[in-house]
Amino acid sequence: MNKLLLGRYIPGDSLIHHLDPRAKLFASFYFIVIIFFCNNFSSFGLMFLFTFMSILLSKISLSFFLKGVRPLIWLILFTVSLQVLFTNGGTVYFKFGFLTISEFGLQNGAYIFLRIVLIIFMSTLLTLTTPPLSLADAIEYLLRPLKKLKFPAHETSMMISIALRFVPTLMDETEKIMNAQRARGVDFNEGNLMQKMKAVVPLLIPLFVSSFDRAEDLALAMEARGYRGGEGRTKYRLLHWQWQDTMTILCLALLTGALLFVRQ
C-alpha cells in the first residue's frame, strides 16, 4: 500500500519541478488525449520515449517510479484480459463458448496495456513534481473561464487537491491497520482469492471511521483559519509563466506532429 506514488510530492530541483504547474497540468492532459491516437507499436514507442525523457529530466529514479506503479498492475491486467477475451477479429487462436482469443484481441489488449501504463506514468509524474497547493492553483486558473457559467472553479480545484493530498495518507493509514491486524494473527496472503478478499473487508470500517474523523478535523481547521471560499481571496503564491513553459508546449506540438507521421 505504501508503494503507491499517486498523490505524493517529492521535492526536487529539476527542470520538471520548476515548470509552471499550469504548463505541467495542460501537458499531462494533452498527453493523455493524444495517447488515444496511437494505432501501432511505433507510435507507442514514440510516446514511451517522450515519457522516459520526462522522467529523466525530473531526476526521479526510474526503478523507484516502477515500484510505485506496481500496486496497479493487477488492475491493468484485469482490464487487458477483458479486452483480449471479448474482442473478435483476425486469426482465432482459442475459442471456448463466448470467450475468444483472437489476433485483434491480443493486439487491442497490448494497446490498452500500453495506454494505461503511459497514463499512470504521466499522471504520477505530475503529482510527484508538483506541490498539491500549486496544482490546486493551476486547476483553478484553467477552470476560470467557467466562472461565467457559475461553475465553482475554486471549490472544485480545492476538492481535487485535497483528494490528491490524502491519497498517500489513506494508503499509509491502511498499511498501519494491516500491520495491527497482522499483529493479531491475520494473514492477508493465505488462502484463495475469495479468502484474501474476505480478510481485507475488516479493514474498511476502521479506514472509513479514520477518514471521516480526518475530514472533520480538516473542515474545522479550515473554518478556524477563516476559509470562506474563493471570493475575495488573495494569493501568496503567484504563478509565473516562463520560457521553459513555452518550450514545453512547443515540444508537445512537435510530439503531435511526429505521432501523426508514424501513424498508419
Rank of each mutant, 00 (worst) to 15 (best):
E140G: 03
A163T: 12
F98W: 13
F96W: 15
F104V: 13
L142S: 04
A136M: 14
V117F: 14
E155A: 14
T124K: 00
I73T: 11
S102Q: 04
I101R: 05
R165H: 14
T79Q: 08
L118K: 06
Q83R: 10
L99V: 10
F104S: 15
T156R: 02
I101H: 02
F96Y: 15
A136E: 05
P168R: 10
T100E: 11
P132V: 08
F98R: 10
A110I: 10
P131C: 09
I162Y: 06
S134N: 14
I73R: 09
F166M: 10
L106S: 04
L106Y: 05
R115S: 13
L114Y: 04
L125Q: 01
K147S: 13
S134W: 07
F94K: 03
I112L: 12
K95Q: 15
F104H: 11
T91E: 13
P145H: 01
N108S: 12
L75N: 12
T156F: 15
G89N: 08
I73C: 05
G89E: 07
L106D: 02
L135V: 01
E155M: 12
I73P: 09
L143T: 01
L164T: 00
T87H: 03
A153L: 08
F121R: 00
F96P: 03
I76K: 05
F86S: 07
E103F: 05
T124C: 04
L149Y: 13
I162C: 05
L133W: 11
I116K: 08
Y141Q: 03
T87D: 05
T91D: 09
V117G: 08
I116T: 10
L75R: 10
P152S: 07
T91C: 00
S161N: 06
M158C: 11
I139N: 00
G89P: 06
F121Y: 14
K147I: 11
V84Q: 03
I76F: 06
S123Q: 09
G109N: 06
F94I: 06
A110Q: 08
L85H: 06
L114R: 03
F113S: 07
F98M: 11
L75S: 14
T79S: 15
M122K: 14
A138N: 02
L125T: 00
A153K: 02
T100P: 03
L118F: 03
M159Y: 03
N88I: 09
L75I: 15
T127V: 06
Q83C: 06
F86G: 08
P168S: 13
S81Y: 05
A136N: 00
P152T: 05
Q83G: 01
W74C: 08
I73Q: 07
Q107N: 10
L77W: 10
F94T: 04
T91V: 13
T87P: 04
T100Y: 01
S134V: 06
S81A: 15
M122N: 14
M122T: 13
P152V: 07
T91M: 12
G89Q: 06
M158P: 01
L85Y: 08
G90K: 05
A163V: 09
L114F: 07
S157T: 03
L72W: 06
F78T: 13
A136D: 01
I139K: 01
R115G: 07
L82Y: 13
I162N: 07
S157E: 02
F166E: 02
A110E: 03
E155T: 11
T100C: 09
L72A: 14
K147N: 12
L85A: 09
R165Y: 13
A153C: 10
N88L: 11
Q107H: 08
I112K: 03
K148A: 13
L82R: 10
L146N: 09
V92E: 09
